[in-house]
Nucleic acid binder design. Structure first.
Lengths: 178, 178
DNA sequence: TTGACGCTATATCAGATTGATATATATGCG
DNA sequence: CGCATATATATCAATCTGATATAGCGTCAA
């Protein structure tokens, strides 16, 4: 799935500017399973406009720079329905943290502890973000689904890491006592 | 983290050809949190050789094409240690499945069921792969760590989806009974 | 025995994407 | 006023993906 389809999907839920789409995928409910940079979002919106899948409207703002608000068209909705009907690609998960843990022989126990704590912080931050977004009214079935899935997976990660952290602290204490 | 560091990390665990590295990240123990294509692996190995971080040795095989076996050097181990000592980037998780579920209003219940079942199959396949790799002897602390983490997270995903699937089947039955 | 298929193995490249950087407006703070 | 920060758009080199090409060897059925 490319960034064009991604933008179309977000615009099917609400009108947005490029900047707002970026915020959605960075801090919003989608942040834990979607990512895209300005460098792909802005060209995608330009192309979608040229294809007639979205419309643009320049909006003046007080206290902020003007923005271009994009809205999905009927043709856009059809294109989106077509795009998400194909069997999706398998999930992609990339973790430099796990790569580090795999090569833990190169790390001191202290550095491992720092890495584990950072991962725990990241996971808890994601959980907090989901909780925050879920409080917001007017979210549909889809949002509940992804929030539930995200909670389940992230919570499991936290639980596993808390255990690993305790295990490591015990080992460090034992080594210090020697 | 770039593919060069990734190759260096894998070569620190065992000698390998480019093809074998690809297999490790595709079917091996690392498959669920690492990815790289031939198009990045081969150039990375060429560059690492030029930099003196790895050595190449052409190996003739019976019944298979010859292969180039790469081995990490002392300079390579130092470069690796330096590379993984920096605080790693945050995990990246991209899921077209969750994107589909978010936009479930565009999907029929039957299509949702198919998508959920496919995701369940994918997760169970990953779990089976981890179980299979864990049986193999001579895996170190690092491998156990990532296997445990993978099991925890994937199992949580399966549990959540089993529930969502049952819920959906109930709704479909209720609608059919109307 | 031949030819179709699949696995091992390396290589290349167009197109997509990232991450950084540039530019501009407006607010708040000392 | 200078500085930091947030909003907002845009661009681009470096990187990576996904597809494709090429080739040796094995296997198995027609």
């Amino acid at each position: 799935m490319n960034v064009r389809t991604l933008c179309l999907g977000i615009l099917s839920l609400q009108e947005a500017s490029g900047y707002e789409i970026k915020k959605d995928v960075e801090d919003g409910l989608f942040s834990h399973f979607i990512d895209a940079s300005f460098g792909s979002i802005y060209p995608a919106l330009t192309q979608l406009t040229a294809e007639g899948y979205v419309t643009v409207r320049e909006e003046e703002q007080t206290g902020k720079p003007d923005k271009k608000v994009y809205a999905i068209t009927e043709a856009g909705r059809n294109a989106l329905a077509r795009a998400i009907s194909v069997s999706p690609a398998k999930d992609k998960y990339k973790s430099e943290f796990l790569f580090q843990m795999l090569l833990q022989d190169y790390l001191s126990p202290e550095m491992m502890l720092v890495a584990i704590q950072k991962q725990l912080d990241d996971l808890n931050e994601d959980l907090a973000r989901i909780a925050e977004c879920s409080h917001e009214a007017a979210i549909g079935h889809g949002s509940h689904f992804v929030a539930d899935y995200g909670n389940a997976v992230l919570t499991a990660g936290v639980k596993c890491l808390e255990y690993k952290k305790a295990e490591l602290l015990q080992q460090m204490a034992a080594r210090a006592a020697e």
